[in-house]
Write a protein that binds this DNA or RNA. Structure first.
Lengths: 342, 342
DNA sequence: TTGAAAGCGTTACCAA
DNA sequence: TTGGTAACGCTTTCAA
């Protein structure tokens, strides 16, 4: 009953308090209320106070649908990730959102589940909210996706990968170089019997190919490979390692396409009483933080999730604000981390 | 150059294709295009085809800001969770979103970080997008939050807890009963020396109190307690257990307020060469799926994340669609799971 | 089955 | 520093 402000005589009145209601109560014009909300520095102190009082009194909540329609600024950023249940993406988005929120933006997340078709429908759905920018995972997008994005005419940041020709900006690391680096790392450790357990998503495949090619370059061929379905989980990792071991893979090293897989594999190694890393060395990807507290000797490829999120946010903001930006390809790098017991 | 549709003579033309553009190309009125999009069954087959062709031709993407403003239906659902980096919330939201997407809604997620102040500002920010419903974590909301929610006049589902007096609907489980059940479980297992490592969030506190009270009821007092800061992580769990052990806690059982803490504690137990569960029994909360693949004998309180997300979505949808709903308190229950070696 | 007119609640533009 | 007027792109209402 506090909301007595249904002053409109329209036949479609919403009942909720509008900027006009606040203006009437404050005794100013609607545009002044709008200024108090958006550019308070342009309003006289006295007016400001009057209006703010009216806002507090009415419990007015601005309508961003109307505001966005009029200003063509939705203050919304869209983000498409394969899965929020996967902590690497979730944490990246957390950092991304945090920075953007500080600049007054909200982030609308969609989960594509590694599917191109789903990405299409998500992008299309999300563009109908007229986001001011969009965060994408990966650099492979269907022709329709690209057309939609170009048509939307907003800043686009692609992530988790690198390409010399991004749609707009790209923030990530090279999966090819990771595959090569892990191969070189294992060779340097003296391994000659090497296996691979990999998911089938695009980026994992690129790591796999580079890995195998680099090994071949060093004369190591006949790599045992086991492919596991998406989404990856502990069971898949365990099964993947079991697959290798059951098919004659002995003492050696195995590269997994994610830490989740490597963790699952550890259970299998334990069940078979294989000493880690002496009899079996495992290398993951993603550097899940819990690795440090649970298993010694699990090596992983680390990249900085916070940095990806933050650089992506900064890139979008600078483009939205029309700052002159030269950097279109941002390589956040990676490193191979050997976990010590702790 | 394909977008030649800037037909408006306005001084604020957007350049992007509008429903009017499509209407002109199809040779129908704008409202017919709108019907094709929203109620295609009310349009003659021939008209339908004509319009769909024009839509495809132009690559028209509807503007939901305008549509939402006119119809007062944003097709947006807001969700506030403590943290998306925590997989229990992330997975719940994934299920929640999936069901809603199938009904044409998108989910806007905000992270409150267990802070009431942050929840206030998030709710306020999110309500300005005029969501058609809102998902909340927990049942404790500040007076301002409640006022905002009531003012918004939309369906609200509270989750992760239970109360006889929800704002609207509540979907969750009883933390009090969990505390009691774990106490009874440990007593039945013959434990008399019992410890607790708990975070300081509201729901963890309720579990803690019920746990200690139930133990007292069975004559077990002097529980060793260690509190750890939010957000919980492996290190905190490890430190918490170390704290207990360093202060004279010997052979016994420890209840952790989350699986994350219990997992971290396992590392400490291993470092001290304590046999699990013979010398030290650990009980977690949340039933992280990886527990099954890494540690035998880690007991946990399980609840169904998928069910929470799905029931919450269903509850919102039925309210949005004005279905007669009797159920306002939905208890999804929980169970204590003993992990077996695998 | 289709359409004309009138909003939805806000901001841009220009003027005072 | 403040305000009037006209959009923004869509849907509702009512009529044909």
């Amino acid at each position: 009953m506090a909301t007595t402000g249904t002053t409109s005589s329209s036949n479609r009145a919403s009942g909720s308090i509008t900027l006009d209601d606040v203006a009437k109560i404050a005794g100013v014009s609607p545009i002044t209320v709008s200024r108090v909300l958006n550019q308070p520095e342009k309003v006289a102190a006295k007016t400001l106070e009057k209006v703010q009082h009216a806002i507090a009194l009415t419990g007015y909540v601005p309508n961003l649908l109307a505001g966005g329609l009029a200003s063509r600024k939705s203050r919304l950023i869209a983000a498409i990730v394969p899965s929020m249940a996967n902590s690497v993406y979730a944490e990246t988005i957390t950092f991304f959102s945090k920075l953007l929120r500080e600049s007054g933006y909200q982030v609308l997340v969609g989960e594509s589940g590694f599917s191109e078709k789903q990405e299409e429908s998500l992008i299309s759905a999300v563009l109908s909210r007229r986001p001011d920018g969009i965060f994408l995972t990966g650099i492979n997008h269907s022709a329709l996706c690209r057309r939609l994005l170009v048509g939307a005419n907003i800043p686009v940041v692609e992530t988790w990968d690198l390409t010399p020709t991004p749609l707009d900006v790209v923030v990530g690391f090279s999966h090819e170089r990771i595959g090569q680096a892990v191969a070189e790392y294992l060779i340097a450790k003296g391994h000659r019997n090497i296996g691979l357990v990999s998911a089938t998503d695009h980026r994992a495949q690129i790591r796999q190919r580079a890995f195998i090619e680099m090994l071949a370059k060093h004369g190591i061929t006949g790599i045992s490979v086991s492919h596991v379905p998406l989404p990856t989980n502990f069971k898949a990792g365990r099964d993947g390692l079991a697959d290798l071991l059951d098919n004659g893979f002995g003492k050696g090293a195995v590269f997994f396409s994610s830490d989740t897989l490597a963790q699952g594999a550890l259970a299998e190694a334990q069940a078979r009483n294989l000493a880690i890393p002496d009899q079996l060395a495992l290398v993951g990807f993603g550097d899940q933080p819990y690795a440090a507290y649970t298993y010694p000797s699990l090596t992983s490829v680390r990249f900085d999730r916070a940095e990806i999120g933050q650089r992506a946010a900064t890139a979008l903001l600078s483009r939205i604000n029309d700052e002159v930006t030269r950097e279109n390809v941002i390589d956040v790098g990676f490193e191979i981390v050997e976990r010590q017991s702790c």
